[in-house]
Nucleic acid binder design. Structure first.
Length: 308
DNA sequence: GTACAGGCAGTAT
DNA sequence: ATACTGCCTGTA
């Protein structure tokens, strides 16, 4: 399975991030727009920014108003990854036709940096379900186990800590709509509290070590581990492969592993197939493969008129 | 009623 | 290594 060579020259245009587009891309679950403001749950913080100013003066984000509760100074640098050199990252793989098309259509799309504990507890709920359902589960969890904060005369709930989830009653968790994921989130929380899952270590070690460590937890498989690594543990080479990405790798890139005749439905990727495709993607897209995945994912979902 | 939605673990071959 | 199966919940 040799990757096709790049077939387009690198793009040299300037890229400016678009927070709204980024939030809408399905990587973040607990953000909502109320009036002209976006509000997001980030661990024990509620983050807020104004939408106005993004479109009119797209060359700087100075006139976007950012705030938070409790105070988190300049959170946008962490959360919107303004520390990334986006032009360098995009030029790393923008010669690929499909990704460069996605970059042209959605130049403001980015990856957001999530709070690791929240990210782990969130994505462990994301198996075999859709984004609407994930949102519902996480909202229910926050309402039930998070702390209530008042902002702009409205109630918000922070995301529950692992410690709180760990001592939550199974039936209470289940009543949030988790179903069989109850066991998974409970195990995730337990592993975080006990220190079996050590966020500092996961951040500092390399991609493969961190992934191996994460996948020891009940409920964390290949895909969910990659999401956690990409969105919260600084592993930009992580390339999560869901059914959509798998179909794209098959139909567009022609990267079929043995027996992957038609990944239409029922045909789930085996662990081995996942690993082969994942490695192939990293070789092809480079050390920022996660960004390429995000552009691909958004593009193919939009083309399919999927609702978020 | 049936099919499907951004997987994973357990078991059998 | 791969194939098959069950699984909560909600919607079309």
């Amino acid at each position: 399975m040799t990757p096709k060579p790049f077939s387009q020259p690198p793009s040299s245009s300037v890229h400016v991030f678009d927070p709204c587009l980024t939030i809408n891309s399905g990587q973040m679950f607990l953000w909502e727009k109320i009036g002209q403001y976006w509000y997001g749950t980030y661990g024990n913080h509620i983050l807020k920014f104004s939408e106005s100013g993004v479109k009119d003066d797209s060359n700087n984000e100075e006139n976007i108003e950012f705030s938070s509760l409790p105070e988190y100074n300049r959170w946008q640098y962490d959360v919107f990854r303004l520390d990334d050199d986006i032009n360098k990252i995009l030029s790393d793989f923008s010669r690929d036709i499909l990704v460069s098309e996605a970059i042209r259509l959605y130049p403001g799309l980015r990856i957001m940096r999530q709070q690791p504990e929240q990210c782990m507890l969130s994505f462990v709920c994301a198996s075999n379900t859709n984004i609407l359902m994930i949102r519902r589960m996480l909202k229910n969890l926050s309402r039930k186990f998070g702390a209530k904060l008042e902002l702009d005369g409205r109630e918000f709930f922070t995301f529950p800590t692992a410690e709180r989830i760990n001592r939550a009653d199974d039936n209470e968790l289940r009543s949030c709509g988790l179903g069989y994921r109850t066991k998974s989130i409970k195990n995730m929380a337990k592993n975080i509290v006990s220190g079996e899952i050590d966020i500092k270590y996961l951040k500092s070690t390399n991609y493969h070590n961190a992934k191996k460590d994460l996948m020891r937890v009940y409920g964390i498989g290949n895909k969910i581990a990659d999401c956690i690594l990409l969105f919260s543990l600084e592993k930009l080479e992580a390339f999560p492969i869901d059914v959509w990405i798998a179909r794209t790798l098959f139909y567009h890139y022609g990267w079929q592993t043995k027996d992957m005749k038609e990944p239409k439905r029922n045909k789930k990727l085996s662990t081995n197939q996942y690993n082969i495709l994942s490695e192939t993607a990293r070789e092809y897209f480079g050390k920022y493969s996660g960004y390429a995945q995000q552009y691909l994912y958004y593009h193919i979902r939009e083309s399919a008129h999927k609702n978020w």
